[in-house]
C-alpha cells in the first residue's frame, strides 16, 4: 500500500518540481530582462531595427484584421439593434468594441504569431549555433544586446500599432454603416465623436503595452533557453507563440477587469 502512495506522489512530484523550476527560471529571466532594459548601455540601432520589424512590417496585418473586425461588428450590432429600432447605437458599439477590445486583442495575437515566432527562431538559432556564447566571449551582455532592444521596442510599438488599428477599425465600421446600411455619414461621425471617451483609448493602449511586453518576452525567453539543434528551435517557436497567445487572452481579461472596476 505504502509503495503505491509513494509511487503516486513521485509521479506527481516530478512534473511539479519541473513546473516550479520553470517558473523560477522565468522569474529570473524577467528580472534580468527588466534590469537590463533600464540600465545603460542602450543599443539604439538594434532598437530601431526592432521598431521596423515589430511595428512597420506588422502594419498590413494589423490593418487588415482591424478593418474586418470593425466591419463585422457594425454588421452584427446592426442586426441586434435593428430589432429595437436603435440604429444610432451601432456607432458607439463599434467605437467601444474596437478601441477597448478588438484592436488590442487582435493586434496582439497577430503580432504574437508574426514576431514571437520570428524572435524565438532567431534567438534560438543563435543559442544552438553558439552565437550567444560568442557574444559573451566578446564581452557583450546578450541581455543588453538581444533581449532589451526587443522588449523595449515591443512595449513602445504595440500601443502605436493599436492606435492605428483603432482608426482603421472604426473606419471599417463607418464603411459598412454608410455604404451598406445607408446611415448618414455626418450623423455616424458625430455619434462616434460624441461617444469617444479617453478611458476607452487608454484601456486599449495599456493592454497593447502589456501585450508588447508579453510577446517579446516569450519570444526571447523561449529562444534563449532552446537546446539541441533545429528541433529545439522549432519547439521554442511553437512555445513562444502558444504561451504568448494564452497570456494575452488571460491578461486581456485581467486588465479589462481592472479598468471595469473604475
Amino acid at each position: 500500500m505504502a509503495t503505491k502512495i509513494e509511487l503516486f506522489l513521485r509521479a506527481l512530484g516530478k512534473p511539479l518540481v519541473k513546473f516550479i523550476m520553470r517558473l523560477g527560471e522565468l522569474t529570473i529571466f524577467i528580472a534580468r530582462s527588466i534590469y537590463n532594459c533600464l540600465t545603460p548601455p542602450f543599443y539604439f540601432k538594434l532598437m530601431g531595427r526592432q521598431f521596423m520589424d515589430i511595428g512597420f512590417y506588422s502594419l498590413p496585418v494589423v490593418g487588415l484584421t482591424t478593418i474586418f473586425a470593425g466591419m463585422v461588428i457594425a454588421l452584427q450590432s446592426y442586426t441586434g439593434f435593428a430589432r429595437f429600432g436603435a440604429e444610432s447605437g451601432v456607432a458607439s458599439v463599434v467605437l467601444i468594441s474596437v478601441t477597448r477590445e478588438l484592436a488590442p486583442a487582435l493586434s496582439g495575437l497577430m503580432v504574437a504569431g508574426r514576431i514571437g515566432a520570428a524572435m524565438a527562431a532567431e534567438i534560438g538559432t543563435m543559442r544552438v549555433t553558439e552565437q550567444i556564447d560568442a557574444l559573451v566571449t566578446l564581452s557583450t551582455n546578450p541581455f543588453k544586446y538581444l533581449v532589451a532592444p526587443r522588449i523595449i521596442a515591443g512595449i513602445i510599438v504595440l500601443p502605436i500599432l493599436v492606435l492605428i488599428g483603432d482608426v482603421i477599425g472604426i473606419f471599417g465600421g463607418y464603411v459598412v454603416c454608410v455604404y451598406k446600411l445607408g446611415f448618414n455619414p455626418a450623423n455616424y461621425i458625430n455619434s462616434t465623436l460624441q461617444n469617444l471617451e479617453s478611458l476607452d483609448i487608454v484601456t486599449g493602449v495599456v493592454k497593447a503595452a502589456v501585450f508588447g511586453f508579453i510577446i517579446t518576452l516569450m519570444g526571447c525567453y523561449n529562444g534563449y533557453r532552446s537546446r539541441g539543434g533545429a528541433q529545439g528551435v522549432g519547439e521554442a517557436t511553437t512555445n513562444a507563440v502558444v504561451s504568448a497567445s494564452i497570456l494575452i487572452l488571460v491578461f486581456n481579461y485581467i486588465i479589462t477587469e481592472l479598468f471595469f472596476a473604475k
Binding site: 543563435m126 553558439e130 552565437q131 560568442a134 559573451v136 566571449t137 566578446l138 564581452s139
Partner: peptide, 16 residues
C-alpha cells in the same frame, strides 16, 4: 573576456 578570444567549434559567426 576582454583578455580572451575564442574560435568556436562551429564558427558561431553572427549571421545577421
Amino acid at each position: 573576456h576582454g583578455k580572451m578570444g575564442m574560435l568556436f567549434q562551429g564558427g558561431a559567426l553572427f549571421d545577421s
